[in-house]
């Protein structure tokens, strides 16, 4: 493929593999600048070598020994020395006209390479961005145990509305409320009922249907931050102001739109203090107090069925 007089077709360099080595060299330089100087030097050498080879390849057609003289090898009609250049449309065609059905593999290759490389670049950019956006959905949350203070504040058979910070690093926004009742002992083990106040219809805060004894309120500062305990007498169970969901004293739904019983907290006792752990979901509770039988399920969002036929609608739960 040599440049010919009277031919103004664009000069197409032959395909060359050197740019690949050149690109690898550039990458080595960039990585080397961060990681180690020798790697950068190797990269620079690679870049120089492959760059030279590439340029040599590309300019092959122009490297003629008889520079300055019009080439005389263009074909029978080519110009003789000193003659005016032949107009572009008169000169002999540089390439034979394409035969019917002939393809242009370079075009196809370039098109494919553009689309393919573009796709790869778009993917390289998009995947981490998407992962960044939806990552929190699949992350396991660290659960902080909640210290509700000494057991003396929980009188047997008495409901206490406990308000606490569930995650000290998040602060006020993680304030949660639980209904705690000391059930006395089941055998030799202490029994507590610890119900989350979040309505399992759509997550509004429920309230006790009965008086709160504000004067007997206990405010204390535990290692979970401020904890407020207000004794209550939820004679009518618990009710949600948003859409009218009603629950009995064990958290079973009695009326309204909720689809299951109120969620509960795991609890444990250490050094005479009551701690709350993770939350779990409850389909229903039979019995009451220490003898209650709780159908326990993995924590599900409000409004989601955990038992019965409808549970097939929520086969998977994101980690909580």
């Amino acid at each position: 493929m040599e440049p010919q007089p009277g031919q103004d077709k664009p000069h197409l360099p032959p395909p060359s593999l050197w740019p690949i080595g050149f690109a690898i060299g550039v990458v080595c330089i960039l990585v080397g600048l961060i990681v180690s100087w020798p790697a950068a030097a190797v990269g620079a050498a690679l870049t120089a070598i492959f760059g030279f080879l590439w340029v040599r390849d590309v300019t092959k057609g122009y490297q003629r020994p008889d520079a300055g003289v019009e080439p005389a090898v263009g074909g029978p009609e080519s110009a003789t020395e000193g003659a005016p250049a032949i107009p572009a449309d008169r000169g002999e065609a540089a390439m034979p006209p394409p035969e019917p059905g002939e393809t242009f593999p370079r075009n196809v290759f370039l098109e494919g390479a553009t689309l393919g490389l573009g796709g790869v670049i778009a993917g390289i950019v998009t995947v981490p961005i998407l992962g960044f956006a939806i990552g929190p959905v699949f992350e396991h949350k660290h659960h902080h145990e909640i210290d509700l203070g000494p057991l003396e504040n929980f009188k047997e058979g008495q409901y206490v509305v406990a308000t606490f910070i569930s995650n000290p690093s998040e602060g006020e926004i993680s304030r949660r409320t639980a209904y705690i009742r000391n059930n006395g002992f089941l055998g030799d083990k202490p029994s507590f009922t610890a119900i989350s106040n979040r309505c399992v219809h759509l997550g509004c805060p429920t309230q006790p249907n009965g008086p709160l004894f504000d004067r007997r309120e206990v405010e204390q500062h535990t290692k979970s931050g401020p904890v407020k305990l207000v004794p209550a007498l939820p004679a009518g169970g618990f009710g949600c102001p948003c859409h009218g969901g009603q629950y009995d004293q064990e958290g079973n739904r009695t009326a309204g739109p909720p689809v299951r019983a109120l969620d509960r907290y795991e609890f444990y006792i250490r050094n005479g203090r009551l701690y709350l752990g993770k939350t779990f979901s409850v389909a229903s509770v039979s019995g009451s107090g220490a003898n209650a039988k709780i159908k326990k399920y993995r924590l599900a969002g409000p409004g989601q069925h955990v038992d019965g036929f409808e549970q097939v609608l929520y086969p998977l739960q994101p980690p909580s």
Binding site: P136, K141, I173, G303, Q304, L313, P315, Q317, P318
Partner: peptide, 29 residues
């Protein structure tokens, strides 16, 4: 809270949609 939990009751992917909107399992900063 209610709006996100309504999204959460959509079958199958609802819980994940709610988690995406909340940026985790709880509403926070």
């Amino acid at each position: 809270v209610v709006g996100i939990n309504i999204n959460g009751t959509a079958p199958f992917l609802g819980p994940f949609l709610a988690s995406f909107l909340r940026s985790g399992s709880e509403i926070g900063g």
